[in-house]
């Protein structure tokens, strides 16, 4: 489904963000990537929807080598990949439902989307996804009226409404408090299992990783230093990934 073949990436400022990455992620897996900041987690993720282009090797998504896709093909690829951002990236002055409908833009003709005419089944889909996340009663509330946790759940509904095959979540709970973090992670895991989506989450909280991941990938200095199912992961594994003992602030807590 997603394949990295000997991928390396050197930024213009000579930073080697990725070094010879070989990686295969199967359809439907819930993968958590852990590592300290600067380990290359974000860069790895950005390679998948080509927000950055590797300087060496190939990234294959859905049997397509994506490095050479043309603009229109790229947009098509991106409609297949949903993203959840650390800061939710909602339009604050728009209602929750409209924000969720942003997920349909890639599937709607430009003209219809400009005048705000969406097919009824798309609206039904958006509402259904809000219901799955449990915030359907906020559908017509402006996004800036919601708490951080609610906003992040809106962005999960937005991603679901996009009907992607892959979800990328880049530090989705970094701006949230512990109970809300757990709720967001729980919702994310549940819906991605229900829809059979391949999900890749960047986290730096090890307890969240251990609780929700199917598979853990550990990164340090641009290299994969651990890759295995959750059953094989212990706190010792994290100490190996981090290269030092685990600190208390690296756990989210309850």
């Amino acid at each position: 489904m997603i394949e990295f073949k000997n991928v390396s990436l050197i930024y213009p400022n000579r930073v080697e963000a990725l070094k010879n990455i070989d990686l295969t992620i199967e359809k439907g897996e819930f993968v958590v990537i852990v590592g300290m900041s600067g380990a290359g987690k974000s860069t790895l993720m950005k390679c998948i929807n080509r927000m950055v282009i590797p300087t060496g090797g190939e990234v294959i998504v859905d049997n397509q080598v994506i490095s050479h896709l043309k603009e229109s093909k790229l947009r098509k690829l991106r409609t297949q990949i949903g993203i959840i951002f650390q800061d939710y990236n909602l339009v604050k002055r728009m209602s929750v439902l409209r924000n969720v409908m942003v997920g349909r833009l890639g599937h709607t003709s430009t003209f219809n989307s400009l005048i705000g005419r969406f097919p009824q089944e798309d609206l039904q889909l958006a509402m259904k996804n809000l219901k799955r996340i449990g915030i359907d009663e906020k559908a017509y509330v402006r996004a800036d009226q919601l708490s951080g946790g609610q906003q992040q759940r809106v962005s999960i509904a937005r991603v679901l409404t996009q009907q992607p095959k892959i979800i990328l979540a880049d530090e989705p709970v970094a701006s949230l408090d512990p109970p809300t973090s757990h709720q967001v992670m729980r919702d994310l895991k549940r819906v991605s299992k229900e829809d059979g989506l391949t999900t890749i989450v960047n986290l730096h909280f090890i307890d969240l990783a251990m609780e929700y991941a199917d598979r853990v990938i550990g990164m340090r200095e641009g290299e994969i230093v651990f890759d295995g199912p959750i059953a094989e992961v212990t706190e010792k594994t994290f100490e190996e990934i981090y290269g030092r003992p685990i600190r208390e602030e690296e756990k989210r807590g309850e």
Binding site: R98, M101, F118, Q120, L123, A139, Y140
Partner: peptide
């Protein structure tokens, strides 16, 4: 419930 028509605006 699903049959209810949903509009973009409240």
């Amino acid at each position: 419930n699903n049959q209810k028509k949903i509009s973009l605006r409240s």
